[in-house]
């Protein structure tokens, strides 16, 4: 096991190089973060060149990549080219928000999807099963942008117009003296809902089909034939085995927890990793994009590793080496 982990960690190094190199080339091809200056009548072309020179942006691409890598190896992700704050500070500044939003969404999705999925599988082709399937397909198909805006218009704007209890449109807390626990919760309800609806759908499909597969296995029939009660068979035998692929998926979704939700964070003006990523790309903030990519690439690799390890832990038949 340890040899396996060490090997995988070593494999990570060329992988990280590859990912960051590709990102570096792409984001540089997208142009300079200072191209807007071209349209400021008070800025001369020489000014734009001087600024790019001062920031080292006119050096050859290869040289800049080497500089970036050597800085990263010294633990320095550099400064954002847009607001000149350290990249690491900006990432750390919003990480907690993202973990709360994504973590709660995942937790709630599982709390809904697991029992529903099992129920639907056990009562296959019942009305409830069909209803669950239909809702799941709908939930999965709904574009998040549309769903988010719809939630805002209904629960924030219309509810307040109708004199009902309404939820805030966005942000993290009430800026007019809020900040308490309930205030934070109020601000999370709509974004979490927008995230949970499609997530539940995905988890439901997995759990339902895994469960279906499991309850058709011979050992389940054996357990039933032994005269064990329906519940005991379902939960002690079938469900635990159906969980194995679920564990893998959880490991793989680890980076998502940190990556945040690109669309939902944007709509709900929620300062998190997703929103940071979108604005960094939009601004062509090279250093910011590189920093974020590095963090995500690292997390994806770790997530995969974790999934493999967990897989071996929950399924003794699997040997890692």
């Amino acid at each position: 096991m340890i040899a396996f982990i060490v090997r995988r960690l070593l494999q990570m190094i060329p992988l990280l190089f590859g990912i960051t190199l590709i990102t570096f080339v792409i984001i540089n091809a997208a142009g300079s973060p200072f191209s807007d200056l071209q349209f400021d009548p008070r800025v001369t072309p020489a000014d734009k060149e001087r600024i790019e020179e001062n920031l080292g942006l006119n050096e050859p691409l290869a040289k800049r990549y080497v500089i970036w890598v050597s800085n990263v190896l010294r633990g320095d992700l550099g400064y954002s080219l847009i607001n000149f704050r350290p990249v690491s500070d900006r990432i750390l500044g919003v990480m907690a928000n993202t973990l709360i939003l994504s973590g709660l969404s995942l937790l709630i999705s599982l709390l809904i999807a697991v029992p529903l999925g099992i129920y639907a599988a056990v009562h296959r082709n019942s009305i409830i099963d069909r209803l669950v399937n239909l809702t799941a397909v709908a939930g999965y198909a709904v574009p998040t942008v549309w769903l988010g805006l719809l939630l805002i218009i209904l629960f924030s704007v219309k509810f307040s117009e109708w004199g009902l209890y309404s939820l805030p449109v966005g942000g993290v807390q009430d800026l007019r003296g809020g900040g308490g626990f309930w205030d934070r919760v109020e601000h999370l309800i709509l974004p979490i809902t927008a995230l949970v609806i499609p997530q539940v759908a995905v988890w439901l499909f997995y759990i339902r089909s895994n469960m279906l597969e499991t309850i058709r296995q011979d050992y389940v029939r054996t357990a039933n034939a032994k005269g064990l009660g329906g519940r005991a068979v379902l939960y002690r035998h079938a469900f635990r085995n159906a969980l194995i692929p679920l564990v893998t998926l959880l490991g793989l979704s680890l980076p998502d927890l940190f990556a945040g939700a690109l669309i939902v964070e944007n709509i709900f003006a929620y300062p998190g990793m997703g929103r940071l990523t979108v604005s960094a790309i939009g601004d062509k903030d090279h250093t910011m994009v590189m920093g974020i990519t590095l963090v995500f690439a690292f997390l994806v690799i770790i997530g995969n590793l974790l999934a493999d390890i967990l897989y071996a832990v929950v399924d003794p038949r699997i040997r890692l080496d």
Binding site: V169, N266, V278
Partner: peptide
């Protein structure tokens, strides 16, 4: 900042 311009309009409407 309100990255989504439609949501920003709604935030103005709602008084946020």
């Amino acid at each position: 900042t309100w990255p989504d311009d439609t949501a920003a309009v709604e935030a103005l409407r709602s008084g946020d």
